[in-house]
Write a protein that binds this DNA or RNA. Structure first.
Lengths: 193, 193
DNA sequence: TTATTAGGACTAACTAGTCAGTACTAAACA
DNA sequence: TGTTTAGTACTGACTAGTTAGTCCTAATAA
């Protein structure tokens, strides 16, 4: 059931990631999903509603498929978790022919200035993402994996900021290098003396 | 002379920074600058041409007013230069009611996937920006300001990536904190042992 | 029966861009 | 001296296409 609705969600998710929310027209979503306009507006009351639903779903999927399986994997050492996390992110951005950037970072830059609904959701997600990193750093400081002369929260914030900036560079330079060498350097800087 | 042309450039620069290139219509630029459409197309052959000219000008202005006066200020110690640079960036983003983000980072995310002219200009500028940072880091490693067990180029790349990500966070969270605490942490991590 | 899908015509506002023609100035010419 | 020419800056009306979203009808599942 709801075959059309799922088709719309899947198509729009890809289009929003590649072209951005505002630069993707409803007609393009219709064309890609093969759904009629009336059916679209039967399922979603507006393009904005669709965008917010897709954002929510993407967040939940990312938390489950990436964050929990790497940073939240308690069977690994904290530093191994961080390495696995970076590996997963590199995998996510491995299409270097046309890197699409971070779906959350893209949307944050595109929408934060013009739509509070998007901004608030993204701000909350970045905070929660940071918390997951912080827990890993905190534990790594206890185990001696990481140097412990810094606040875990501040380090987590630095890691997330750097990650988003590095993905921006990957997209702009069409090269994975800023992400791979940047994450390596972060790991070295965090190593306990 | 060329009063209209300068008005267009000034208005469009602000609008592009606040709303992005694609989200700013020619009509909005016309309205803000008080210039007629036909006059606009007398001075610029297309909206894209205007965007590229504004990007070029913004780059030159930023290099002269920010980069050269801070990171390129040879009368300061390398670590002081970096501190001054961060201070200047924070000043640039001090409007926290509605932080507009980095004009270059915004444009990179918005345009890199769809327009090679913008992408190439931004990629080249990020490289040159990185070089300016690298020179400062390199000198700081010689003077003992910074730890010298890392490649200056890699550190410079990390600093720029982090900066762009931090500015993205400032825009999303509407708080300067990710930038101020992040830059402080970067300074501490770079300190020689 | 109720939820879903299809079709298509339609709107009002907005999009980038074009066009023929005007006003002004300053140099070149006769 | 007056006249022509040329370049610059500018104007209002216009086009063709796109935008998100509406409305109504009818067919097709569950």
């Amino acid at each position: 059931m709801n075959k059309s609705k799922e088709k719309i969600l899947a198509s729009a998710k890809e289009l929003f990631h590649e072209y951005g929310f505002q630069q993707t027209s409803v007609d393009e979503i219709l064309k890609k999903s093969g759904v009629t306009k009336s059916n679209f507006y039967y399922h979603f009351k507006s393009k904005e509603e669709l965008g917010l639903i897709i954002l929510e779903r993407f967040i939940k999927q990312y938390e489950a498929d990436v964050l929990m399986k790497t940073l939240g994997n308690k069977s690994l050492d904290p530093s191994e978790r961080l390495i696995e996390f970076y590996k997963a992110v590199r995998m996510f951005h491995r299409d270097l022919h046309n890197p699409k950037g971070c779906p959350f970072g893209n949307m944050a830059i595109e929408m934060s200035g013009s739509n509070e609904n998007f901004r608030e959701k993204l701000s909350a997600f970045f905070n929660s993402w940071e918390k997951v990193i912080e827990e890993c750093i905190n534990e790594g400081m206890s185990t001696g994996d990481f140097r412990s002369d810094l606040h875990p929260g501040v380090v987590a914030q630095l890691i997330l900021s750097h990650l988003e900036g590095a993905i921006m560079m990957v997209k702009t330079h069409r090269s994975i290098e800023p992400l791979s060498s940047g994450s390596e350097t972060i790991m070295r800087l965090l190593k306990a003396a």
